[in-house]
Design a protein around this nucleic acid. Structure first.
Lengths: 337, 337
DNA sequence: CTCCACTCCGTAAACGTTTACCGATGCTTT
DNA sequence: AAAGCATCGGTAAACGTTTACGGAGTGGAG
């Protein structure tokens, strides 16, 4: 663990100046003899350039931050799997921030951008506060928000329309003849929770279905919360014939409860999830789910950010990904292999 | 996006030297009046220290790398979920490397350490080559390997004994009266694949079970490969009454195929997975799986690395996590809620 | 009143790069 | 043969911090 060689070490060994070393290593034109000696010295010393010093000089860290609430959520996972290779290919490292659903931590990540450890940031915020907006304006590096960013915020934005997503699910169940449809939502004070609640109200009205609060239960976006919420809802409304769930994890929790209570899926109760994660095909029966294009959104976000980093100076851009219903056994009654 | 304030900007505005600014910001003793002026100037300017410059001076990046084959694998995910908060609490950022199962990329990550962008690295290598060893010796930052590191390698090591893991699964199935037990392994040239193959041979012999190659099929560690391997094995040995799978993803693929072919699980064929990931409880029937303590190994690895970073100068340490069989419906025939 | 000790803070060097700006060398051109 | 011109590479400054060192000012002791 001795201190490593620097360009100064190389310069001494090769008998040239550090400027020449730098030039050779960066491929700038140099006399062959000089080049040879530098490369030989560098090779013998096992030289590796110090990225910190390089960053200080170049003002680029070659890192990009990615901030999400919880890596455990497979919807985010799908995004990372797209984003990481794209960034790597463009020469950027990925710094992962898992903030929990804590606003303070999200803000902290945004403030951290000021430390210049990253050249840009992709964030999937759960909530959107004044504080967020202030930080967006103050940020000195490009930011891409996956989810709804307020109009006028100086950030690129990849969004999807989960209201439409809820509508797709509801229309599908309605077409299958279901009429007592419950709704398991996430926290309504989060951006996705609010959008889904709005979509639910809107679509219910359009289809002439009841949309009273007695058909809705709320919990966090996790499986255990979904199970608990499903339990409460079934207790209150025992004759439900379908459940729309605000994400796949909630839906899986609901499936657990339904199975435990002996309700057949989809015969007695049809279930839809949202996000169309890998888990949907793992469940039994396989889960009908509204795809919000997680992978596609991840790709789009990486693309927007890389454009910015390449010097694209346009105003904020918005990419919208359309929701798409993926029908599987939990509503359609036959297995999709 | 103007250039941000530096300590020089603050020094000018506060009418002091940059040394004083630095001292105030680092909490070194200063006259109250000076401190006040510096803090006020810093506040007004919205100063955020430049972490790159700080790193250059301090020779610490406050980053730690984590390198895995694929974030999609929930066993790795469980590790990240433990590692990330521990690192964050200790003031380190997490740089995520997803290498695929490509050795060259793993080596590249190790070489990258020389760039000093990270103060340490946690790696879960799939294979272990001469090249790896060389890089371990050349590395100028502490490395923790999750998985089997060769004796004598200058790295800390968190390991588990997946041979024993396979034995646990096999003994369990044997105790349930199964005698025609197949084995779906991952690539035998990977470290875990080799260990599991050895465990299989060993335990079969000990239990007096046949362990010929006709009972083994090999594929990659993914669900689709598991399904394909299960298909081939069932074609060749139709009267199997149990399947030991080298990880949960393979087992889930096997479950798909068994269901498609109308074999009841566990009645006709019992199935065990390995890693005891979240997916095990999602499958139906829930998957009996050998826990290799992914979360625990993640915690241990983070702990070892943080010790090193705190200046612990001992020789290489090894932490071993014991495998543990978690019995669920795919072998025991009754649901575990 | 002088000297000493102490406190506070400014100057400058250092971390390891990149790069602007010459100066030296040797070749071409007239 | 002198002037001009490339070409090559060395010197030094800069990126934004931290910190060793020493100077200036203050207060107390003799």
């Amino acid at each position: 663990m001795t201190e490593g060689p620097t360009i100064t070490t190389i310069a001494q060994r090769a008998g040239v100046s550090i400027a020449s070393v730098s030039r050779v290593l960066n491929g700038l034109p140099t006399r062959p003899e000089t080049e040879r000696r530098v490369l030989q010295a560098a090779g013998e010393l096992g030289y590796v350039p110090n990225s910190v010093a390089r960053s200080l000089k170049s003002r680029r860290s070659n890192q990009v931050g990615f901030a999400i609430a919880d890596i455990g959520n497979p919807a985010y996972l799908a995004m990372i799997r797209e984003i990481q290779p794209l960034l790597k290919a463009a020469g950027y490292r990925l710094v992962l921030h898992s903030t929990g659903s804590d606003i303070a931590e999200e803000i902290e990540v945004l403030r951290g951008l000021g430390e210049r450890y990253a050249d840009g940031l992709i964030m999937v915020p759960l909530r959107m506060t004044e504080e967020h907006l202030k930080m967006f304006h103050a940020a000195r590096a490009p930011i891409v928000i996956i989810g709804a960013a307020p109009d006028g915020a100086p950030v690129d934005n990849v969004r999807t329309d989960s209201r439409t997503g809820v509508r797709l699910a509801l229309a599908h169940l309605h077409a299958l003849g279901r009429r007592r449809i419950g709704f398991l939502n996430g926290p309504p004070d989060t951006v996705p929770g609010a959008a889904r609640a709005a979509g639910w109200a809107e679509a219910s009205r359009a289809l002439g279905l009841p949309a009273g609060p007695e058909l809705t239960e709320v919990g966090d976006f996790y499986r255990a919360d979904g199970a608990a919420a499903a339990g409460r809802l079934l207790d209150r409304v025992p004759d439900l014939d379908a459940l729309v769930c605000a994400n796949d994890l909630i839906a899986l929790g609901a499936l657990d409860v339904l199975r435990r209570r002996g309700r057949r899926v989809p015969d007695d109760v049809a279930v839809t999830g949202m996000d169309d994660t890998d888990l949907a095909t793992l469940a039994w029966p396989a889960l009908t789910s509204v795809s919000l294009g997680s992978a596609e959104r991840g790709r789009a976000a990486a693309g927007l950010l890389l454009d910015r980093l390449a010097g694209d100076g346009q105003g904020p851009r918005v990419v919208t990904v359309e929701p798409r219903l993926v029908v599987r056994g939990s509503t359609a009654g036959q297995e999709t292999p």
